[in-house]
């Protein structure tokens, strides 16, 4: 019965909900019947209204030439000027390509990394070792990009880089490769930095999910004669699948956001053609132009893309038989 090893918890939950799902009920009845649930919702709703939705009027500056001193009411309205500049500007194609390319690489390499590490950690049988590894690999999360960049330079500089000269001597001499300057090495470096800085920290959420697995399930699987691999496949993986799906959907919304500081520090005149992304370009616009309005226009554009991605991936997840976000 190996195929029927989904956590009973999940099944029970589904059954319970199905059983209680009511038809349409009058508002007053609903309010009365679920008054405690609504009561619990109120502080959170208040938060979202106050700190998230009340400031949303700030988005209007995408259609203005916003001057901080003049404020929202007195800054001149310019219609779609900033969107026109964005979409028809000579840099748009390149920015979009670079941003999407990095997003794709992030989704392919950076997103799965913590899952793999968490699963490997879960299989470790020496628990002291496990604890040490676990505590060490999440430390990079606390270092700022400036420090990460200094470390990268220390390792990859063509002049004194430890790793660079190591690779150089291993590959048997020849001209030295300047990893920091060559456009083709820019993306691998960005991904390497991201992997180093975020993979360890990212495991926490999956480890929490794995901690919730009922040990009896493994016991039951073993009684059914399942080996290690099959236990992994039929118990461990299904247990964290909902978490993976939720994380995938949520991160898809922010896929077009790159860490400005990370990219900016790695950019130089020789690799700029591949390095420029929306987030760094917004910064350059800000330097010359103040750029609040332009930045907001770019933010709106990315936001729309993010909404599409979130709802798209949510729809996809449901089509694939997963639960999705809601």
């Amino acid at each position: 019965m190996a195929t029927d090893l989904a956590p009973p918890a999940t099944k029970a939950a589904r059954k319970a909900e199905k059983g209680r799902r009511p038809g349409r009920v009058p508002v007053r009845t609903a309010l009365l019947r679920y008054r405690w649930l609504y009561l619990m919702l109120i502080p959170g709703l208040l938060y979202f209204v106050l700190f998230k939705y009340l400031p949303m009027y700030g988005l209007s500056i995408a259609f203005q030439d916003f001057v901080p001193f003049l404020g929202y009411s007195d800054s001149p309205w310019v219609g779609l000027k900033h969107f026109e500049n964005l979409f028809t500007g000579p840099d748009f194609g390149r920015l979009l390509f670079n941003t999407l390319f990095l997003a794709l690489l992030t989704a392919l390499f950076v997103f799965p990394a913590p899952i793999i590490v968490a699963l490997l950690l879960n299989e470790l049988r020496v628990s002291v070792f496990k604890r040490y590894v676990q505590s060490l690999i999440y430390i990079p999360h606390f270092l700022s990009w400036t420090i990460v960049f200094s470390l990268t330079y220390l390792l990859f500089s063509v002049d004194f880089g430890v790793v660079a000269s190591w690779i150089h001597s291993l590959s048997g001499g020849g001209p030295k490769v300047d990893y920091m300057a060559q456009p083709e090495w820019f993306r691998p470096l960005v991904i390497l930095q991201l992997l180093w800085k975020t993979s360890g920290w990212g495991t926490i959420i999956y480890l929490a999910a794995l901690a919730g697995v009922d040990p009896n399930l493994y016991e039951a699987a073993r009684m059914d004669g399942a080996g290690r691999w099959r236990q992994f496949w039929h118990v461990t993986l299904p247990a964290i699948r909902p978490t993976i799906v939720v994380m995938a959907i949520l991160t898809s919304g922010n896929l077009l956001d790159q860490s400005f500081e990370q990219i900016w520090l790695l950019t130089n005149s020789l690799n700029r053609s591949v390095a420029d992304v929306f987030d760094t370009f917004v910064y350059y616009v800000g330097v010359t132009q103040g750029g609040y309005s332009y930045a907001t226009a770019v933010g709106l554009f990315k936001g729309v893309a993010g909404v599409v991605l979130i709802f798209g991936s949510n729809w996809l997840a449901k089509r694939l038989g997963q639960r999705g976000l809601f």
Binding site: F51, Y53, P55, M56, L59, T296, G303, V307
Partner: peptide, 16 residues
């Protein structure tokens, strides 16, 4: 979910 991708920005939040 909408607030995951849209925000008013620094200045309006400061004013709130």
């Amino acid at each position: 979910i909408f607030t995951l991708v849209f925000g008013g920005g620094i200045v309006p939040t400061y004013l709130v």
